[in-house]
């Protein structure tokens, strides 16, 4: 049972590290799907990639700030 639970956690963990980042990524992809599947403009797909890239920058910088704040609080 432990093994099955560990495997299930591993499978979820393949795609989800931070739930908020995952949610934002899914929202961006869903928005991209809504727009691209209707307009079929090829260059627009690069906008989707840019949005995902910007999201990566924001998510990592925010997590780094959280980690530093936590570290500073624990050192006090």
């Amino acid at each position: 049972m432990k093994f099955v639970r560990a495997a299930a956690e591993e499978v979820i963990g393949l795609f989800v590290g931070d739930w908020s980042q995952t949610a934002i990524t899914v929202v961006l992809l869903a928005a991209g799907w809504l727009v691209l599947s209707r307009l079929h403009v090829s260059g627009l797909s690069f906008l989707l990639a840019l949005a995902l890239a910007v999201q990566l920058v924001f998510a990592t910088v925010a997590e780094a700030r959280r980690a530093r704040r936590k570290e500073a609080t624990s050192q006090r």
């Binding site: 795609f15 980042q21 995952t22 899914v26 990566l56 998510a59």
Partner: peptide, 17 residues
Amino acid sequence: GTLLVLFGLRWLHKAVL
């Protein structure tokens, strides 16, 4: 594609940190 984006971004996120 969606799963690969989620998977790849998770690896990338950790690698950046």
